Simulated scan of single mutants.
Amino acid sequence: MKQSKYKLNQITDYINELINNHQRVGLSVAIVKDSEIIYSKGFGYSQLQPVNRPIDGDTLMSIQSISKNFMALSIMQLVEKNLISLDDSIVKYLPYFRTNNKQQSDTITIRHLLSHTAGFPSNLGIANMIAPNVREIFSETPTEFQEALDYYNLTDDEIRSVQSREDVTKWFQKVELEYPAGEGWNYCTDSYVILADLFEKVTGSNWENHLRNEILTPLNMERTTSDSDKVERDLNSARYYLGENKIETPFPKNSISAPIGYLYSSANDLGKYLAFHLNKVPNILRTDLVEEMQKPIHPVSEEWRFGSEIRSYGIAWFTDVYRGFKVVEHGGGQMAVRSLIAMVPELNLGVVVLLNFDGTAHHDICDKIIDVFIDS
């Protein structure tokens, strides 16, 4: 018990020094060991205006691309029910799906979308550019919004015309594949909107309802939602601050693209989520399918390797090795949002770090926590 307390105090001291030395805004951390959350703590503030509000393990925060893991888990639940197969083609369920080369895109499977191996370019932009406050996001200069449109080869009319997930899927007809499906890897965030469209066409039901009823409620994740209005109204929710001057950024919201990065959660809720993936309890997905998600499918491209020779991607999980231990993780980020969930299965250890500022502190903190448990 004393040893465990010493380990956790080491972590607290490290984070306090980090956040004080660099005048960061706020962060929350949860640590899962075996099936329990053994550490839950907030540092700094969730909001600076109108008053400083302390952050804690229940503070609602944008989790950005960690959202993709919930979409992938939902798809795997359909696989368990034999409603779909991972190697089914997308056009089997979405006959209107195609790229500019129909013969090529007809070969794209559900597994390809889940693992970012479909051949899509990585900088499509459509899913993020349909955010309702996109003009506010690109407002630093009078021309910034038009520059963003030009960068993504989009028009204002084009993004205004997207009113549903089906519209996003149909938009892909203009996309030129960079390689044949399965023969490369590009992190294409937009593809997860297609997965949500597919989910809703197969089930005839809204993905958010399924998420709440079949994942969040069984896992007792009461502080996780796709409802941005609800999050903004919650007094214990974060705002996001960019740079040394702590400039508040536009609130991240985008209901159509919720599966790519617009869910909100807390460190404690994500700790419960990691406990499920580590221990497969409660039984919301068959053990072999949970393990299937964590198996490497394809090595990631150079800019995503971070110096690793073996970093790979499975189904909404990156896989790597740290100090000889397998690590399974996924992060997220946008402007002043940073999020990270990580597991070290051999140690039955899970780590959650959520920030409301930019930088790499989430990775530094996660590495420190893993170091402490390896060295104990």
Rank of each mutant, 00 (worst) to 15 (best):
Y152W: 08
E140S: 12
G184R: 05
N220H: 14
K92T: 12
V231T: 10
P299H: 05
E309M: 08
E302M: 12
E329Y: 14
L285Y: 07
L263P: 01
N82G: 01
Y151I: 01
T99F: 10
I126Q: 02
C188S: 14
K68Y: 05
V281D: 15
E136Q: 15
L78W: 01
S28R: 04
S105D: 12
S164C: 06
M293E: 12
V353W: 09
Y93W: 13
S191L: 08
M61F: 02
K326P: 11
V351F: 12
Q23E: 15
Q49M: 10
L340W: 06
Q77V: 08
S122D: 14
A72F: 11
F251E: 05
Y192F: 15
E136N: 10
V32A: 09
D197R: 02
P132F: 04
M71E: 12
H22G: 13
S266N: 04
N69V: 04
H116G: 02
A267W: 04
D358K: 00
M221I: 07
L355M: 14
R135Y: 03
N348E: 15
E136I: 05
I38Y: 08
M343A: 11
I365L: 06
A238D: 10
A336L: 02
I315D: 06
L73S: 07
H362C: 08
N52R: 14
N245W: 01
L285D: 04
D190I: 00
I315Q: 06
H363M: 12
D234Y: 07
L195W: 03
G243K: 04
R135N: 05
G184T: 00
I108E: 01
Y14T: 01
F325S: 07
I110F: 11
Y152N: 10
M76Y: 14
A258Q: 03
L149Y: 05
S40Y: 04
I215H: 03
Y45W: 13
E200Q: 13
F43G: 13
I365R: 01
T59A: 10
F318W: 11
K5Y: 13
S40Q: 13
S46F: 09
Y273P: 08
L154T: 00
L154A: 06
F172Y: 11
D227I: 09
T107P: 00
D367L: 10
H277C: 03
H298F: 15
L211Q: 03
I247V: 15
F357H: 13
A316L: 04
D367W: 11
N20E: 15
S74M: 11
G57K: 07
D234N: 15
D288E: 15
P296N: 03
N153W: 03
E346F: 07
D13V: 10
E178T: 05
F276L: 13
Y240E: 01
G307W: 08
A342Y: 07
G182A: 07
L349R: 08
K170R: 14
W185H: 14
Y187T: 00
M221R: 09
R98V: 03
S115H: 11
L274A: 06
F172W: 03
N69A: 14
V344G: 11
V231D: 09
S164F: 04
S115I: 02
P142M: 08
K2Y: 11
A72R: 09
I247C: 04
Q49N: 14
A127W: 00
D190V: 00
I374P: 11
I55Q: 08
E291Y: 06
D229Q: 14
R233L: 12
V193A: 06
V328F: 07
G119H: 05
I284W: 06
V134E: 00
I341R: 05
P50C: 11
